[in-house]
Amino acid sequence: MKGSYKAKRTAGNVIAYIILILISIIWLFPFVGLVLQSFRSYATEYGGMVDYLVPKAFSLDNYKFLFDLSQTNYLLWYRNTIVIAFFVTLFQTIVVLCVSYALSRMRFTGRTFLMRFWLILGMFPGFLTMICLYFLLKQFGLTQAGAIPGLILVSVASSGMGYYVCKGYFDTIPKALDEAARIDGATRSKIFFVMTIPMSKPIIIYTALVAFMAPWCDYVFASYVAFGHDSSYNVAVGMTRWVWTNDYQGYFTRFCAGGVLVAIPVTLLFMFLQKYYVEGVTGGAVKG
């Protein structure tokens, strides 16, 4: 009886391994393809689409192209994206912490109204407001040449509405701790800075990680705000043109190379901080 159970389980595990290996292949295939294409030689094999996977000759042509500022602004776009990601991460984390703390720990008039109102606001599609945001930013000179601070401003300004996960985390910190500190004469701000924040390392890292990853994908709004000014594009805006616009013949392998360079830092960071990410999304999922 026991033996057959064990045999069954071994058989089950074998099947499980086979499925897992299959899944891994499917999941990794596009990335392997991306990397292989990025090494296809531009000079000898042409930079456009081909219908085979493994290049006939490997070369660094495409990477050399990306690093040559006389030919492309890729490095500028890359720098822009890092700058945007950095500041958005910094300010967004601060804003989210402030809002979450206020909503989790303090009781004030209009609290529930504010939460409901933001919930409803979140149901409007963001693109609707693009043109309006564009002209608002233009009033402050934050489009085209000033697009980078403009993009940071818009991301940070509306980030207060993404407080759910963080507030959920604060809710789990016992209120008794706060009250004890208040009896000892600590002010609200002291409690926030000295007690709550140090206890919230996982959620801070989660918030920062999510904030950092978003600007790398921002194509829609960034292209709308920065149009006609190549040096203030971000990587997504600059590079999608290589795929979508016919002016860029033979840029496909360069796109792949650029994509690999974009993916590396984000992926590394993500792998490194994966534990916190899991904690955040799991908590968020349960809270809704």
């Binding site: 804003v95 402030c98 809002v99 703390y101 206020a102 303090m106 004030f108 504010l114 933001w118 606001l121 409007f124 609707l128 407001t129 309006c132 945001l133 608002l136 401003l153 818009v154 940070v156 300004a157 509306s158 980030s159 207060g160 509405m161 002010t187 609200r188 701000s189 926030f192």
Partner: peptide, 29 residues
């Protein structure tokens, strides 16, 4: 503002930001 009314300090900027860059554009559209 750092104790009893700390919520006002914390929320002032986020609420203003959401107002100008989310509420206003939505009403406009």
């Amino acid at each position: 503002l750092f104790d009893k009314n700390f919520d006002k300090t914390l929320l002032a900027l986020p609420v203003t930001g959401i107002f100008i860059f989310t509420v206003l554009p939505i009403v406009f559209m």
